[in-house]
Structure formats: C-alpha cells, structure tokens
Amino acid sequence: MFANSRTVASAQTGPHDKLAALVDRHRDAVYRKPLAAYSAGAFDAAIVAWRNAGAAPLIIDAGCGVGESTLRLATQFPDHFVMGIDQSESRIVRGKDWWDGEWPGNFVWVRADLVDFWRQLFEAGIRPARHYLLYPNPWPKIGQLARRWHAHAVFPTVVALGGVLECRSNWDLYIEEFALAVEWLCGVRPVVEAWSPEAGVEPMTPFERKYLASGHGLHRCVVTLPSPLAAPWAGR
C-alpha cells in the first residue's frame, strides 16, 4: 500500500518546554565532535565538483535520501549548483529509474555526515544561497527533543550559514519549534505556513508524495537568514 503513512503521534501539544534552554546551551557552547573518517574526502570531492561546474550559487539539499529532491532542485534552479547530502550510501546509489528524461548537469550527490558537512562548509567560508531540510525524522516523543535538528548542537552553525533556509514536515509542531529556534538564534522571524505543491507540480520527495497521498497536512518554515558575520556564536 502506498497511501498508508500514519500521521505523527506525540504526547506534545505545543513547543517543547525545554527547547529554549537547549538552544541557548548550544549557542553558547563549542561543539567538539570529531569529524567522521570519511567526511574530509567527501567534502573535498563535493567542493571540487562544484568549482569544476563554475562555482554557481550553491543549494544544499540536506538529508536528500534517494536524491529525488536533488534532481528536482537542480531542474528548478538551473543557474545554481545543488549538493544532495545523505549519510546512507545505499539510498544515494539506489537505482533512479523513477526519473523521466535527462538528468540535470548542475548537481552532485554526497555520502557524508550532515553534522560534519555543515561544519566543514562553515569553516571553509562557503555559504549556500538556498538550504533545504525536507521531511527530517520528527523524533516525536517528548524525550527525543535533542534528536530534532533544531535542538541539535550543530543547529547554530546551520543558521550561521545564511541563505534562504526551508524546512518541511508533516508535523506542525516540528515546524513551529524549528521556527522558534531560528528566531532565537538570529532574531529573524520565519514564515510558518500550511503548504502543499501547486497543482501540476510534482512532489519534491518520496515522503512528500506519500504524505500527500495519505491525506496528511504539510507544513513549512521559510526564512532568509542574516549575514553569518552578525552571529558571533557561529561555527561551534
């Protein structure tokens, strides 16, 4: 069955009461997790591919899964270069027979740890023009807050990268929390809205397609972030 995805179930009825304290802690702390062994090589290869393609404005497709969103973003923004990043090699290399027509030439898929890749981008002084987090694992149990990206120790670095940041989810509280964390870190209030693709527009990811077919409400947070130079806590 395709249209059989369950809605997110959680005991939370509003933003987590420990979110603000956790975001504050991460903003003020130095994040020292060592890079994964494969991260340096993966990052270097991705940067070479981008520069060889002309170093066009960069789009980060964070957690790209099987890579459909990477291809759609590369098609939608032909004057940009898209990096689709996922930790799972099997998802990235899986067959792409679901894609009709020619592949765009302005993208690369990267097998890397997102936590490492974000920090490497920041340390290298590379700032994306656009940045997507499409349907991340919501970790909906109350005790799982720290596993949500906006409550992770790397999130101040994500915000410090700047650009247009967009997150989508089928759980409205995830998007509400995400927007709160962004605002607390940079002082800019994101746009939070119920959302669905325009008529005739293909869903961006397999999850988006399945959630729509299952009758879920979709939600997104979109924000144009300020210059990272205005964020002294960045890169930690």
Rank of each mutant, 00 (worst) to 15 (best):
F122I: 01
V108P: 04
I175N: 13
A40W: 00
H16V: 05
Y132D: 10
H219P: 03
I92V: 15
W98Q: 08
A49G: 07
E177H: 07
P78Q: 08
L185M: 11
P128K: 04
G84V: 02
A9N: 06
R27W: 00
H150N: 13
P34C: 12
E183R: 13
A29K: 10
R27P: 03
A29N: 09
W139F: 15
L225G: 11
F178H: 14
Q87S: 14
P136V: 03
I85V: 15
P226W: 02
N137D: 15
W98A: 13
A45K: 13
P78D: 08
L134M: 14
R220T: 04
R91S: 12
W171S: 02
A124H: 10
L173S: 09
E193W: 01
A213I: 00
H131Y: 07
L71N: 06
R168S: 12
N106T: 09
N137H: 09
W184Q: 15
G235L: 02
S10D: 05
R91G: 06
R72V: 06
V93D: 06
A199C: 00
L185Y: 06
W50Q: 07
L145R: 14
V158A: 13
P228G: 15
C221H: 03
D113Y: 04
H150Y: 09
G200W: 03
L225D: 05
R236N: 12
E198M: 05
P57N: 09
C167R: 04
W184E: 12
P34K: 10
W50F: 06
I85P: 09
V159P: 07
G143C: 01
R111E: 12
H80Q: 06
A129Q: 12
P104L: 04
L212G: 15
I59C: 09
V48S: 11
G125M: 03
V191I: 07
R209N: 12
L173F: 05
R189H: 05
E208Y: 09
W233D: 01
W195A: 12
A234C: 05
T70L: 04
V110C: 11
A179D: 02
R94A: 15
R94L: 04
S69N: 10
A56D: 03
V154H: 06
N52K: 14
W184C: 02
W109C: 10
C186T: 07
A199W: 00
G14Q: 13
S90H: 08
W99C: 10
A194V: 05
V30Y: 05
L22V: 12
H152R: 13
G105P: 00
I126G: 10
N170R: 11
L212K: 08
I142T: 14
Y38S: 15
P197S: 10
F178W: 11
I92W: 03
G41K: 09
P203Y: 06
P232L: 04
K141I: 01
V192S: 08
D97I: 01
Q144A: 14
D79E: 15
